[in-house]
Structures are given as C-alpha cells and as structure tokens.
Amino acid sequence: MPLITYRKALNDALAEEISRDENVVIIGEEVAQYNGAYKVTEGLWQRFGDKRVVDAPISEAGFIGMGIGASMLGIRPVMELMFWSFAYVAWDQIIDNAGQVRYMSGGLINCPIVIRGPANGGTSVGATHSHTPENFIANTPGLKVVCPATAYDAKGLMKSAIRDNDPVCVMENTLLYGESWEVPEEEYLIPLGVADIKRKGTDVSLIAHGRAVITALKAAEILAAEHDIHAEVLDLRSIRPLDEEAILNSVRKTHRAVLVDENKPFCGVSAQIAATIQEKAFDDLDAPVQRVCALDAPAIYSPALENLQLPTVSRIIEKVLQIR
C-alpha cells in the first residue's frame, strides 16, 4: 500500500467526490488560487475550475450560512474553515441553521453539508486559534462530528461525510497534515460511528480521538516495553455518532480505562465517554475511569508551556500506573 500524507488523503477524497458527484463544491478562504492555507485543496482549482472550487472572502457567517442554504436545495458544499477556531464567527449558522432546521421543519428539510478544517492546539498560535470544538458540536443533536487520526481514516471518513445527508463537521489537525500512513489505492469508505482498535491490548483501554490517538499509541508502546502493561488503544474516529459498543467491549475486556482527550476536561468528549462507561460497564471496572485532557485554561502561546498543556505521553503513563 502506498504511504501518503494525511493532507494528500484528504485531497484525494475531495477530488474523488468532486468527480463522482456534480453537486459537490468546495468553498472557503484561499482554497482555490492559493491552494489552501494548509494546502489540503492543492491543485483542485486547477483541475476542476472556478465552479467547483471557490475562494470566499473573510465572511464566515455569510459563506457557511450560504452553504447550508444551498445544501437545502441538494448542493453538497464542502466548506473549508481555515481553522475550526473561526467557526465561532459562523456559530449561529452552524448550530441553529445546520443543526436545527431538520427538526424544526418536522423532517421536511435536510442539510447535506460538510464543514471541515483543522481543529487543534499545539502550534503556538494562541488561544483564539487553538480551539477544539468537537465537544460543542457533539452537544448539538442534528450535527455530526468526526476527528480522523490517520490518513487512512481521514480519507474514508471524508468521503462518507460528503455522501452523508446530514451536516457533518470534519475536524482535522495541522500537526497531522504532513504525517504519512498506508492508504489503499482502491476506493473505500469508513462509515461514521465506527471506532477502530489501533492497538490491541488486555490491561487497560486508552480511548482517544484525533491526535490524542497518536499520543496514546506512543504511551502504549512505552507501557509495554517498560512496564509490561498491554494497553489497548481505541480510536473513536467519530464523536457523534459514537461507537458505544466498541467502547464498552474494550472496557469489558481490559477492566480499566484512561481517556485521552485534547479537549478541555469540563464537558469535553471524554466526559461523555466516562459517563457512558460508568452507566453501562460499571461492574466491569476494576478501577475508576481516568482522564488525561488539555490543562484547563485557554491555550497558552508560550511554546515552552504549550507542549505541557496538551496530553503528553508521560501524563498518560502516569495515569495508567496509578490504576494498574
């Protein structure tokens, strides 16, 4: 299988879906002529032209709302947010319009839109640019949200997101764009709502999404090599819909769970996972569920400290050792 970057996997997914469905259109700031601020849309404008790949001015509320409106007529816009942090400018459109219009119309309307872009800290761009709003989105019934951790998942989830008939938010990661993974040449889809065991284990479940999966995998390696602890790493991939069965199955096997989450702890994704585990697998637990989240403050700029703020390998190991 060829090794390709997370960025290229997304690019391929977009190109394949543009080719497959004439209603797919890409809209966002700098996505066309500039090739994307993070080059995810590189070459697409050249290949598919002005109608399919459209540069928007800096008017997030306007163009995201426009995409939602167009999706009501059956267009399948794939909207790029240069950063998910800028979604707050368009929050009413995303939450109230994309999120509620189906319900309020009694099911008469649906919005097959994708809103995508990077949502991560760890690059010293300060608090305004480092938001991870997957928990906010997941808190809104009507919206879906996925957080791919690898190139393979990014491609398969993006293609499913575009074909989905509901609004899907795809949260990528600027720190992963340049990383490579094996991706098959033949077409594949990854359904939303299906988690993936990234590493099998018996002693503890490390449950994560997005880049935290990569951090958890590193921790699992060290736990095995240095502590003879065999951690299972479960990648949620999709936050809403959520693969509850996969979470419960893993915990029933290992009897211990450490949740790794780049969200802030209060009402972060891991808070929901912890609640689910204690409600549905309480008797299977041999220790309290633990969490390793972003330290609970706005994202600090200082590069020296920002690395401490996000979940680290050592914080994960420490937590696991506490409940071994």
Binding site: S124, V125, G126, A127, T128, I300, Y301, S302, A304, L305
Partner: peptide
C-alpha cells in the same frame, strides 16, 4: 507583555 500567553497576535 502578555507573560508569554498571547504571542505575536495578542
């Protein structure tokens, strides 16, 4: 000026 919290933009 922002104790290392804001960076260039802030």
């Amino acid at each position: 000026c922002s104790r290392g919290k804001g960076g260039s933009m802030h």
